[in-house]
Each structure stands twice: as structure tokens, then as C-alpha cells.
């Protein structure tokens, strides 16, 4: 689980990549995702990965991406072994193994450089209903708060002699009840208070709320987008028009 959270959780950064329009970051990651699926030669896959590694370095998240790649490599090693066992084709097996890494990295790059605020902006740009967007915002916003609640509840119950790690599976599950019920009760109270505060700050007053954030396509946005499109074009061209060389 650690590699998963480490590879997908946003941390604030000041790099050119962090400052890109969230739409550019989304477009780039989507294109890299699709390009990885289209690529039919190891060479193209290596190009895609090299491009993303370059961007990660520019985004000063290379270490985190590298860590994700290392963990993913374990799975891709497995994919490689299975493939080689069935197809006896080194090239195809290598392609599948690298493809898996590329797909994970493309998604990871988006999530670790895009703040929840920007995610919200992207959702709005796609004209998702305000309530859906806000539900997402609240869910993410209150993750740290709920975690703190959980710790405090566990502390309180442990201080009343509750032993979480004691007993068999059923007993352990039952031990969770004193933690879960206060957690649910607190969340209900919290959502009531949130609703009051939302009403008091004119939530839903106009059908199309404005936003404080302003996004303008800058040279860096155009540059990254063009590079991504070019890579995609190469892969798409070879996918449709070039018959891949097959080794016997």
C-alpha cells in the first residue's frame, strides 16, 4: 500500500510542471496512457518512458516516480515471466512489461503534481454538476480530519481498556465497533455543521459559480502539449501504418 499512496498523493511543488494548467497535465497523462497502449515496439515504449522521466525530473518528483517505478517493476517482472512462458517471444514480453510501468507512471505523474484544488477545477471545466464536484472536494478535504478523529477515538477507547489486537478474527472485528460508531456519529454531526456553514455562505445561490483561479495557456503548456501530441502521433502512425518487424 505504501508505494501506492506514495505514488499517487499530491505534495506541493514549485516546478514548471506543477504550475502548468491542470488541463495540460491531464492531457499529457491521458496521451501518454493511450500512447503506451498503442506502442508496438520496445523503442516507442522507451521513448514514452524517457519523456515522462524527463518531465518528472523537471517537476522535481523524479525520486518519487523512480520509487513507484521500482515497485511497479516487481509486477512487471511477473508479467514478463508469464508472457515469456506462454509466448516465448522476448520482444512482446518486454513490451508488455514496460507498458505496465508506463501506464502506472503516466497516472502517477498526474496525481502527484495536481493539487486537489486543480482537480476540482478540472471537474468544473468538464461541467460536472456542482454537487458532485463539491462532494468530491469535501471527501478529500476531510480525509486528514477524519484520520485525526479516528486516532482520538482509538486513544479514548484504548484508555478504557479496549485491546484491539486481542482475540480471534471475530473478536477483533467486534473490537472495531467502539471505534466505528463514534466515527460515524462524529461524521454525521460534522456534515450537519458543514451544511449550515455552506448555507450561510450562499452555496447554490447561482447555477454557475465563478472561480478565483485563472488559467491561461502559457508557452510551457503549449510546449508540453505539443511534445505529448507528437509522441502520440508517432505511436499512432506506426500502429496503423507500419507493420511491426517480427522476430521468428
Amino acid at each position: 500500500m505504501m508505494w501506492l499512496s506514495g505514488g499517487f498523493i499530491f505534495r506541493r511543488g514549485e516546478s514548471f510542471y506543477h504550475r502548468l494548467d491542470p488541463r495540460t497535465k491531464l492531457l499529457n497523462s491521458l496521451l501518454m496512457f493511450v500512447t503506451s497502449l498503442l506502442a508496438r515496439s520496445v523503442f516507442e515504449m522507451v521513448l514514452v518512458i524517457a519523456f515522462m522521466v524527463g518531465l518528472s525530473a523537471g517537476a522535481t518528483v523524479l525520486m518519487r516516480v523512480a520509487r513507484t517505478m521500482t515497485f511497479t517493476a516487481l509486477f512487471s517482472g511477473f508479467i514478463f515471466v508469464v508472457n515469456i512462458a506462454f509466448t516465448r517471444n522476448l520482444d512482446t514480453s518486454l513490451l508488455y512489461a514496460i507498458r505496465f510501468i508506463a501506464i502506472v507512471v503516466s497516472t502517477s505523474l498526474f496525481f502527484i503534481t495536481t493539487s486537489p484544488d486543480e482537480l476540482e477545477q478540472v471537474m468544473r471545466m468538464f461541467r460536472l454538476p456542482r454537487d458532485v464536484v463539491f462532494a468530491f472536494v469535501t471527501a478529500v478535504r476531510f480525509i486528514p480530519v477524519m484520520m485525526l478523529d479516528t486516532i482520538q477515538i482509538m486513544d479514548a477507547q484504548k484508555s478504557r481498556g479496549l485491546e484491539l489486537e486481542k482475540g480471534n478474527l471475530i473478536r477483533r472485528a467486534r473490537n472495531m465497533i467502539p471505534i466505528l460508531i463514534p466515527l460515524v456519529v462524529n461524521s454525521v454531526v460534522r456534515s450537519g455543521e458543514l451544511a449550515e456553514a455552506m448555507e450561510s455562505r450562499a452555496y447554490g445561490a447561482v447555477p454557475r459559480p465563478t472561480t478565483l483561479m485563472a488559467y491561461k495557456a502559457r508557452m510551457t503548456d503549449i510546449g508540453v502539449a505539443l511534445a505529448a501530441v507528437a509522441l502520440f502521433a508517432v505511436a499512432a502512425y506506426s500502429f496503423y501504418f507500419v507493420i511491426p518487424v517480427r522476430f521468428p
Binding site: Q152, I153, A156, K158, S159, R160, I177, P182, N186
Partner: peptide, 22 residues
Amino acid sequence: ASTAQLSRKVGVAFQNPDHQLF
């Protein structure tokens, strides 16, 4: 000692009762 063992000797009234009533 575990917290369970220590809590036999030490009782804590935490700030927020809602964090324990279940």
C-alpha cells in the same frame, strides 16, 4: 505495559465525549 494495563491505573477524561460514546 500496554495502554490497557496502564489504563487500569490511569483514567483519562478526554476533551470530546463524542469520541468515546458508542
